[in-house]
Amino acid sequence: MRKGMLMCLLMLMAAVAVLDVAPARAEYGDVVLNKRSDKEGMRPVIFSHWFHRIRFRCKVCHDELGFKMRAGANDVLMVDIVDGKFCGLCHNGQIAWGTERCDLCHSGRHGLESRIHGGNQSLGPGRW
């Protein structure tokens, strides 16, 4: 009987260990932009697809704004954003917060790699 109880306990622990894994870090589709931020002494930018998708359809950024649909394929310069290109079409203080509120976008940990985080659940070889 003691053996049975031990088995049960082991089973319980295995179930917790295997199935109750911590959720994937970052949200699905979160993009880190860090081509220049760290070098310039700013926190990397975190772009959340979920946050934007509630408010805008994909076509707004990927058609009207001209963002290519591959993380890393866009060369987004702060000077262009201030000029109203890329993020700057909305982040101008009218549709969304303006570029003077640096910290709201530059909110990532230092040293993060530029790429999509929290995605790719298929675990393919992946270019994300």
Binding site: R43, S48, C105, S107, R109, H117
Partner: peptide
């Protein structure tokens, strides 16, 4: 369930933005 931004592994827990940005769990 969704991780709060402060624990999601990519946001800097010291960033002042974390007090202002919408939490994924709250929206999703």
């Amino acid at each position: 369930r969704w991780l709060p931004l402060v624990k999601d592994g990519i946001h800097d827990p010291k960033s002042p933005a974390l007090r202002l940005l919408q939490q994924p769990g709250e929206a999703l």
